[in-house]
Amino acid sequence: MSSEAAVSKQNLWGGGDVKPLGASYGKIMMWFFIVSDAFTFSALLISYGLLRLSSPSWPDPDEVFHAFPFMGDMHLPLVFVGLMTFILIFSSVTMVLAVEAGHRNSKKEVITNLIWTILGGIAFLSCQAWEWTHLIHGGTTIYGNPYGPAVFGQLFFCITGFHGAHVTSGVIINIIVLILAYTGYFDRRVQAGEHDPYELVEKVGLYWHFVDLVWVFVFTFFYLV
């Protein structure tokens, strides 16, 4: 009887026999972090909405974002940001492919897909760096811009900068997971017979998809609406 009680107590610390959320501790905590981070982004985007709605004029996105690298002054609205969106969605796909390969314990595919994801993230950040540089040289700073109220530039740099910081940390975390995969961390977990040995890839994947999710909203509210 007493040994039975000891066993069930241990099971409770391990999440209990009946897991009410049906997910591991780490995964649940990653989701809770994402929810709190989503609140931060929501607050930023809703503040943007408040300031934009209360402002009598607002720059036309087609006019502000019309440049493309090496194309000079050609009027190409939305083309560059479309490329950025495509890069980020594609890196999300390679990330989910890495997670899927992790479920099959296929180390080689995990590594290949993680490398593509990291390259996608770096490509996105490079695009953003180019766009920022172009805008700043065109006179759009946090102190003012040639298109409309200064608050446009302030919100743009604040929100895309905050998102870019998330992409940067996502790339760094992906590189860490890639190094772990190379050095056989997941192989050891597979050999130890652990349940779901590639779960770390899944958790990092959740973060990466969240970054993509935020970009979907930033894209709509800064570039389209």
Binding site: V35, A38, F39, L51, L53
Partner: peptide, 25 residues
């Protein structure tokens, strides 16, 4: 929990259309 986000969005979108922050900004 995202119900709170929707609530904030509705409130601030309504307030935003009524406020005049222009002279302040």
């Amino acid at each position: 929990p995202f119900a709170f986000v929707v609530l904030l969005l509705v409130i601030l979108a309504y307030e935003g259309s009524k406020l005049n922050l222009w002279s302040f900004l």
